[in-house]
Computed example of a mutant assay.
Amino acid sequence: MAFEGSTLVDWTVFGRARSELGAGFGRILGYFREDGVKSVAAIEAAVRAGNAVAMVIPAHTLKGEARQFGAEPLADLAETIEMFARDCVERQDTPELAVEHVVKLRPLFQETLALLEREANPLVERRVVGGFGRKAV
């Protein structure tokens, strides 16, 4: 999936989460990684099994965690999948038509996670814009 890094993450939201979480930020990002891998796998397995009920919670979880880090495209896709699955549950239907969304989920999650982890890495060199006393970018 060809997304530009600047469109995958709202860096203002990311920075705010980083500030608010402080020393726990890395740990929470690690939870996002672990939960995200599990959620994506669960959603893929559920759509293959035709089980809309099993898609709802992992999609909901992924949506909320992605929003916490400013990963809006990922959160929006997870929300689309969640709402689709909820509609299928209400209609007592199978989620076959969700496949077009689900196939986009893993690449988007992986690309987004790579950006978040790269930015969170304390060893990444930051450019300083404007010289002395300016915030690093």
Rank of each mutant, 00 (worst) to 15 (best):
D35Q: 12
G15C: 02
A85F: 02
R16E: 12
F69P: 06
N121L: 02
R86G: 00
R33E: 07
F14W: 00
L97M: 09
R134H: 15
V13K: 05
Y31L: 14
F109G: 07
L29T: 01
A114W: 11
K63M: 09
D10I: 03
R48A: 12
L108S: 00
V37Q: 13
G36M: 06
E117G: 00
L74P: 13
K63Y: 08
F25M: 03
F109L: 03
G15F: 04
P122Y: 00
F132C: 14
E44W: 08
H101W: 06
G30F: 04
P107N: 04
C88D: 06
A136C: 11
V53I: 13
G133C: 01
G36F: 07
G30N: 00
S6D: 10
V53F: 15
G26L: 02
R48Q: 14
E20K: 12
A136H: 14
A54E: 07
G64Q: 01
V128H: 15
G15T: 03
K104V: 01
G24D: 14
E119K: 06
L108T: 03
A17P: 04
A78M: 04
V9K: 03
E96N: 05
E111T: 13
E125F: 09
A66K: 05
P58F: 08
G24C: 07
S39W: 14
I28S: 00
A114S: 08
C88W: 04
P95R: 05
T61W: 01
R106W: 04
A23G: 13
D10S: 03
L105C: 01
T61P: 04
E96K: 09
L62A: 04
R126N: 09
A66F: 07
Y31Q: 12
L74D: 12
Q110F: 08
G30R: 01
A85Q: 00
E125P: 13
V40T: 12
L116F: 02
E90S: 08
F69N: 06
Q68T: 10
T112E: 05
E117A: 05
Q92P: 08
E34N: 11
L116P: 01
A46P: 03
E125D: 14
L77C: 00
G50T: 02
G70W: 03
S39P: 05
L8F: 14
R18Q: 10
E72F: 14
R91T: 10
L8H: 10
Q92S: 10
E111C: 01
P95H: 02
R127W: 13
D10R: 06
R48C: 15
E90K: 13
K104Q: 09
V53T: 15
G36Q: 09
E100T: 10
I28R: 03
L21F: 11
F132M: 15
P73H: 07
L29S: 01
V124K: 08
A85W: 01
T112L: 02
V47C: 13
